[in-house]
């Protein structure tokens, strides 16, 4: 021990103290302040956290992660995380300039997330809600098989438990490294949503910055209600792809939430600080146990191809919610 101290003493002696050049001299505020990229205001981090990462001066919405998103959504910030074990298995053994497996590993280390979406179960305004929140920091929030599987499981879980679904999108689209299998997740999730729709259970799609490609072109646009945070980039094709295709500059505010609202694609643009209340109000309206699994019209006996709903979704009398645990979730912070 004393020897080591001795060594470090000598080491230190040999180290030169370099003066920081004047132009690089700064007061260390890292970790205390964050600068708003919109209005340049220096924001005290605690204050920013209290305003749910929305600039109190100009209303700029900072991007937030999936777990924080769920904590904001659920009552008292409590939810149970589900399906964390569902992760990508690199079905194509994809290698580009780097093996996909390594990219996944890095993303997991960097973000602390198992995948680009987090599934939660808990109460929102007292309603049982299965929520999936995507996270752009995990490989651009891209949708591979695991993301598709997790979202589908949460939708099916909602059908079984007569619960509502909220999906928060934040994604560059389908994940290239899983090829056509990623593409198929669009159809898979959309199909699950079609059956949720038949069961007449609520689905709210919350679109956040940025959401493009196969995510927009599937579940993000399929909500009973589609809402977005202000000034989010939302589109099918990314702006660069469009500029390259049509070889002209894009109009200002193109593909923003406000642009989509104006063109009739969204029900509302909602500030993050009011989002939870908005969702609770909407669920109060939509969640109506009297209609669950009841077909809109009595089924007509149609021959030759046309027909009736799958039996499970006709809501036969003896069917009850599958497990009690689904209806009464154990919650944790």
């Amino acid at each position: 021990m004393s020897e080591r101290r001795h060594m470090s003493w000598f080491k230190k002696k040999n180290q030169r103290i370099e003066s920081v050049p004047a132009e690089e001299r700064r007061v260390k505020t890292e970790g205390v302040f964050e600068k708003c990229p919109e209005c340049d205001a220096a924001l005290y981090k605690r204050e920013l956290e209290e305003s749910l990462h929305v600039c109190p001066h100009c209303g700029h919405h900072f991007r937030i992660g999936a777990r924080l998103r769920l904590a904001i959504l659920y009552d008292e910030g409590k939810y149970e995380e589900l399906d964390a074990e569902v992760t990508s298995n690199d079905p194509l053994d994809f290698v580009d300039t780097q093996p996909y497996k390594e990219r996944l590993e890095q993303a997991r280390r960097r973000t602390g997330l198992p995948e680009a979406v987090i599934n939660g179960r808990g109460l929102v305004g007292g309603h049982l809600v299965m929520a999936s929140a995507m996270d752009f920091s995990f490989l651009g929030g891209s949708m591979g098989c695991a993301v598709g599987e997790k979202i589908t499981r949460n939708i099916e879980r909602a059908i079984r438990a007569r619960a509502s679904v909220v999906i928060v999108s934040q994604s560059g689209g389908a994940r290239m490294q899983e090829g056509t299998l990623s593409l198929m997740q669009m159809a898979k999730i959309s199909a699950a949503l079609a059956f949720l729709d038949r069961a007449r259970l609520p689905y709210i799609s919350v679109i956040t910055d940025p959401t493009t490609g196969g995510v927009t072109a599937s579940f993000a646009m399929l909500g009973d209600l589609n809402i977005a945070e202000p000034k989010a980039l939302i589109g099918f094709a990314g702006p660069r792809v469009i500029e390259q295709t049509i070889r002209q500059k894009l109009p200002k505010d193109f593909q923003t939430s406000e642009f989509l609202l104006e063109h009739g694609m969204l029900d509302a643009v909602v500030d993050r600080r009011e989002l939870r209340d908005w969702i609770v109000r909407a669920l109060d309206f939509m969640y109506n146990p009297e209609v669950h699994f009841q077909p809109l019209k009595p089924e007509l006996p149609l021959g030759n191809g046309a027909g009736t709903l799958p039996e499970a979704l006709l809501g036969s009398q003896d069917e009850k919610p599958e497990e009690k645990s689904e209806a009464e979730p154990e919650v944790k912070s």
Binding site: A191, D197, S218, F219, F236
Partner: peptide
């Protein structure tokens, strides 16, 4: 699908999504 201004304005993503949704049932 066509990536253009008019296609985005009229909801290219919504149209595709709705088709997937419809075909499932």
């Amino acid at each position: 699908a066509y990536p253009g201004i008019d296609a985005e304005e009229r909801g290219q993503a919504e149209a595709i999504a709705h088709s997937l949704f419809s075909m499932a049932t």
